[in-house]
Design a protein around this nucleic acid. Structure first.
Length: 417
DNA sequence: TCTGGGGTCCTAGGACCC
DNA sequence: TCTGGGGTCCTAGGACCC
């Protein structure tokens, strides 16, 4: 039932982590509003995670980019204020936003921690004209939660998302198909959703610099250059996109990875780090009642050379011990012995756990499950560190790396929106 | 003390099968 | 004999997003 004239909102929190941090600090007696000075939320430099996670609008003249190292950000702006992240707070802020939005439409899709699509089609009877409604929502969020959002409005998700990006902060924009030429085509091509660094570079070499240039390029040519991605970005440049707002995406994979506080130089420590990562991955799998059919291990060495190795499992599983054993095998098969700064474990090809298969080779499966269940219950009740493997004592490693666990894993965005 | 962590999707090449 | 050809599965890597 493809509605012809849909009204889609895209709600985007302005400088999300930074705004949330600023609001929290103001509420706790701080007098300085981080949003009004050049400031960033950044990772821990001593733990080798020193990058910009979010930046305030006053950093704009310094050309500080999300993802760049704090070292280089400080070179650009010596008076930059850097504050550490508080992921737990951000999850709460995100939830609070969602619960307000849920009042305005039964059809909302969380796209990331700070972006939400809302299908406003047929909702005018309840809330009035869509532009007024968007303003009402925006003001309510500001008044009740203390942070500002941009709301983009159009007839599909892509255009709504592009609209919310137009001018920040605290704005409502429309970008309906008849406005594309005026509002979207003059923008630099890299501002189009799904045109990243690599594609931008190649497009520039072909003389394509604006979204309008891209929109008016022969799509067959783009397909020759970029395969299916060429078709996709041509359609996006022309505002063509019609995926529904939906909340029931299946989760495709669950993974954890971590930059370690020190380089790993021996196999035993490598395995220990894998165990730590696997504990959280397996717990999250069990939490959503899924078993993994494929396990992958990802490593990155001191020189930032990285590679991955994966294996399809004979029998899907969510058992910490079995997944750990396979992770170690994969690790031993690819690691050349170079000092490692980063390790990752990811479970994919997820199967529902409604039943699990007994394997001839894993006669122990019932006991493994019983053990995992017991440990999960203790950790849920008494906290994550209430029970841990003794090998982590004095190891310098967190026994459960990565993974803020959620009641519900919400699926991340995809190129299909 | 420069360079995070969570995802999704696509493609290419090799193995294997008929 | 100068090397079919189509299909599927598997794996590694790259591109993109926030």
């Amino acid at each position: 039932m493809e509605a012809k004239n849909r009204i889609i909102f895209h709600i985007d929190v302005n400088s999300a982590y930074l705004s949330w941090e600023a609001v929290y600090r103001l509420q706790h007696g701080d007098t300085l509003d981080l949003r009004t000075i050049p400031s960033v939320v950044g990772g821990d430099v001593t733990a080798r995670r020193g990058i910009v996670l979010a930046k305030s609008i006053p950093t704009k003249p310094y050309k500080i980019k999300t993802g760049e190292s704090l070292y280089s950000a400080k070179l650009k702006c010596p008076e930059l204020v850097v504050v550490p992240p508080r992921y737990h707070l951000y999850m709460q802020c995100s939830k609070a936003l969602i619960s307000i939005l849920e009042e305005y439409s039964p059809s909302i899709q969380q796209f990331s921690i700070d972006e939400v699509f809302l299908d406003f089609t047929n909702m005018e009877v309840h809330w009035g004209d869509f532009v007024n409604a968007a303003h009402k929502i925006k003001e309510r969020v500001k008044k009740e939660l203390g942070f500002t959002v941009n709301i983009g409005i159009s007839s599909n998700k892509l255009l709504a998302k592009m609209a919310s990006d137009l001018q920040k902060p605290d704005k409502v924009h429309t970008l309906f198909p008849h406005e594309i030429q005026d509002k979207m085509w003059p923008l630099p091509v890299e501002e189009l959703f799904m045109v990243g660094r690599s594609t931008t570079f190649k497009l520039h070499k072909k003389g394509i610099f604006t979204i309008g240039d891209l929109a008016t390029t022969d799509p067959n040519l783009l397909m020759q250059w970029f395969k299916s991605h060429g078709r996709l970005i041509w359609e996006f440049a022309n505002g063509i996109e019609n995926s529904p707002v939906r909340q029931d995406f299946p989760v495709k994979g669950i993974g954890n990875s971590s930059t370690l506080p020190f380089d790993i130089e021996d196999r035993k420590t490598g395995h220990r780090a894998l165990l730590s990562l696997t504990e959280t991955v397996a717990m999250r799998l069990r939490n959503i009642r899924k078993s993994a059919g494929v396990l992958s291990v990802f490593i990155k060495d001191r020189d930032f050379e990285s590679c991955s190795h994966q294996r399809k499992l004979n029998v899907p599983t969510h058992s910490t011990n079995i997944l750990y054993r396979i992770a170690c095998q994969l690790f031993d098969e690819i690691w050349q012995g170079h000092p490692l700064r980063h390790l990752g474990v990811r479970a994919s090809e997820l199967y529902s756990d409604d039943f699990y298969q007994l394997s001839f080779f894993e006669p122990d499966i019932e006991r493994q499950n019983a053990l995992d269940t017991a440990v999960d219950e203790i950790r849920t009740q008494y906290g994550w560190n209430s029970i841990m493997r003794s090998c982590f004592l004095h190891s310098g490693l967190n026994p459960m790396m990565g993974g803020v666990i959620q009641e519900e894993e919400y699926p991340m965005m995809s190129s299909l929106l």
